[in-house]
Write a protein that binds this DNA or RNA. Structure first.
Lengths: 118, 118
DNA sequence: TCATATACAGAAAAATTTTTCGGTATTCTG
DNA sequence: CAGAATACCGAAAAATTTTTCTGTATATGA
């Protein structure tokens, strides 16, 4: 089988469970991109997150699909086309993503002053 | 200098900023332990999170202090005593921690069925 | 024909995080 | 005195994640 996570998610503690689903570097951003409900093609997602290595987005998209937070539709066309959508389960995480986004906006200055090299 | 994070926190995106503050394996749990506002000694925190390697808790506590989410008080006694408290800034993250905790509780069954080996 | 776009996979390297192990220092208890 | 408790720290090993690179396949457009 392809790339495989050793410990897919953490079932020992509800907090760790939630964290383990989204803590990988770009997963929360992917969910944020898909938040509107509009299906997105992988190339589109790559364009929206240019800082992320494409391979990592592939891997993390795959894990999000495995975990049921994102759904994938493959169109048997050529050139190939596929689309990713946030699932109902994934949508239930959006309030958390929103809250983190908002917190980051509200407290950006503190950390900019602290760690920003301008 | 001692142990040093390469990229302390992520200033490129507000969502990544928030995530980078709490995504390390035990940070959210530490904040959860301190949520009540009661000061905790390191040994107490270790006892509450027995799955975590003590060294990692030390490191992550230190980072939480550096980032201003947790405050540390050292009592110049012998044997040494120190206490950790959540700061006002740290408290502003609690709604997010709470939401993740609650989400984990609500959706535990799905993932238990999916990944739990009983 | 050749380059491009598309989506994705494997492998290996690099970076980072987590864990394990050992060590410092001091006081109190047996 | 030996050992425990206390709070740390450094170094190195292990584990994991992220990045980079290369390769598959097929159609379209120059």
């Amino acid at each position: 089988m392809a790339y495989e996570k050793k410990i897919p998610i953490d079932l020992d503690c509800p907090l760790r469970l939630t964290m383990s689903l989204i803590e990988s570097k770009w997963k929360s951003c992917i969910l944020d991109e898909l938040r509107a409900g509009k299906p997105m093609r992988p190339s589109e997602i790559h364009k929206c997150l240019p800082e992320a290595a494409p391979r990592v987005l592939d891997i993390q998209l795959k894990e999000l699909v495995e975990d049921g937070l994102v759904a994938k539709t493959i169109y048997p066309e050529l050139p190939p086309r596929s689309e990713y959508n946030i699932t109902e389960l994934g949508k239930t995480l959006l309030p958390i993503i929103d809250a983190m986004l908002q917190w980051g906006e509200e407290h950006f200055d503190i950390f900019e002053k602290k760690y920003g090299n301008k």
